[in-house]
Amino acid sequence: MRLLSYADDCDSDEGESDLEGGRRRRSLTGRGAMLRYLSRKIHRYFKPDPSRLLGIFLLLGSILLLMVYLGENGGILLPYSRDPAMENHPFAGLTSLVMVAGHAVYTSRICAKANEESSWFLEPYQRNSGQAATFLEHIHRGVEAASRDNQSLLLFSGGETRKEAGPRSEAQSYWSVADANDWFGHSSSVRDRAVTEEYARDSFENLLFSICRFRELTGQYPQNITVVSYHFKQHRFVALHRSALKFPRERFAYLGTLPAISTAAAAARGELFVQEQFRKDPYGCIGQLREKRIKRDPFARLIPYPAGCPEIANLFTYCGSSVISRRLPWN
């Protein structure tokens, strides 16, 4: 068997006979010969299996559609997938979470006046003597708790919840006040371990979002959690929110402070009402609790979670009157 060559497929210089007309036809040379050669090659390649030709046409069609899409949109959307190699965990190694729940936005240009009510944007029910001092105490207690555990991450939690206060978060307000007060004598040990969670709109989100934020920053979920808030909210956090998240009771601590004396009675009555709402709606996803979240998002912030904590993504979509049945990382 001899090998096919380009010369085998080309006409000779003498040309071919036209049997019907009795004339000789000039041979194809140059470009014409090359096209005829390629035509024969393609014919020989696809003749045994026409499906090859169909496959080529489909491939070319797909490429054409892709080019049109790219031309109109300037890019292509690909399915999102996490690349572990690209994850950045600046606080890897920390194991405990200290979360301070925010209650107001600081509006003064002078952070040294944090103990004055005029320095904060306050709702009508908060406009009482001694209210600002309670915020300052929460910040102080959180810093103290973090200073006692060098494996803890201090998280101030609270979003941009007040339209009149501008696009400033409760969390950043608390961080700035702590910084202005030199971290109450613990700047060298706590400041570099203090960060913010700036999307929470209620107490349940304070806890859930802070757990997710901890995962973003450390690469793992907290082994222990300490929450700092008012004493009258202890049952809400410990019995309701913690239970809804199925976090072990023995690894959950609560540091409660007293409210302003002038608001204590009204705060206690209001708390009973909120607790009843969360008993019926543990995840705050329907009714008045949901409406409150919408109201506390005046700047329509796009919540980034659970991108940083995919293992508990179901906690961000589940809505039910009973506790979620799925197993969670800390179980």
Rank of each mutant, 00 (worst) to 15 (best):
191 R>M: 14
191 R>F: 01
191 R>T: 03
191 R>L: 03
191 R>A: 13
192 D>F: 14
192 D>E: 14
192 D>A: 14
192 D>Y: 15
193 R>L: 08
193 R>I: 14
193 R>P: 09
193 R>Q: 08
194 A>K: 10
194 A>F: 08
195 V>H: 11
195 V>D: 06
195 V>K: 15
196 T>F: 00
196 T>G: 00
196 T>C: 12
196 T>Y: 01
196 T>N: 02
197 E>I: 04
197 E>S: 06
197 E>D: 09
198 E>H: 06
198 E>F: 04
198 E>S: 15
198 E>D: 13
199 Y>K: 12
199 Y>M: 07
199 Y>S: 10
199 Y>G: 06
199 Y>E: 10
199 Y>Q: 11
200 A>V: 04
200 A>G: 07
200 A>M: 08
200 A>K: 03
200 A>P: 00
200 A>F: 00
201 R>Q: 12
201 R>Y: 09
201 R>L: 13
202 D>H: 07
202 D>Y: 02
202 D>R: 01
202 D>N: 13
203 S>R: 12
203 S>C: 13
203 S>M: 07
203 S>A: 09
204 F>V: 00
204 F>Y: 13
205 E>M: 13
205 E>D: 14
205 E>C: 14
205 E>S: 13
206 N>L: 12
206 N>C: 06
206 N>P: 11
207 L>V: 11
207 L>F: 05
207 L>A: 02
208 L>M: 14
208 L>S: 07
208 L>K: 08
209 F>L: 12
209 F>M: 14
209 F>C: 07
209 F>T: 02
210 S>K: 01
210 S>F: 06
210 S>C: 06
210 S>V: 09
210 S>H: 03
210 S>N: 07
210 S>R: 03
211 I>D: 05
211 I>F: 03
211 I>P: 02
211 I>Q: 07
211 I>H: 10
211 I>C: 11
212 C>L: 11
212 C>A: 15
212 C>Q: 06
212 C>S: 13
213 R>E: 14
213 R>F: 09
214 F>S: 04
214 F>D: 05
214 F>W: 05
214 F>H: 03
214 F>I: 06
214 F>A: 04
214 F>R: 00
215 R>P: 04
215 R>E: 01
215 R>V: 01
215 R>H: 09
216 E>A: 09
216 E>M: 05
217 L>T: 02
219 G>N: 07
219 G>L: 04
219 G>F: 03
220 Q>S: 15
220 Q>R: 13
220 Q>L: 11
220 Q>F: 12
220 Q>H: 15
220 Q>Y: 12
221 Y>H: 14
221 Y>M: 11
221 Y>G: 11
222 P>F: 06
222 P>D: 03
222 P>G: 05
223 Q>W: 11
223 Q>N: 15
223 Q>R: 15
224 N>E: 15
224 N>V: 13
224 N>P: 04
225 I>W: 02
225 I>R: 03
225 I>C: 04
226 T>F: 01
226 T>Q: 08
226 T>I: 11
226 T>V: 13
227 V>D: 10
227 V>F: 14
227 V>T: 06
227 V>G: 09
227 V>P: 03
227 V>C: 11
228 V>K: 01
228 V>R: 00
229 S>E: 04
229 S>P: 01
229 S>C: 06
229 S>R: 06
229 S>A: 12
229 S>W: 01
230 Y>A: 10
231 H>T: 10
231 H>F: 02
231 H>I: 07
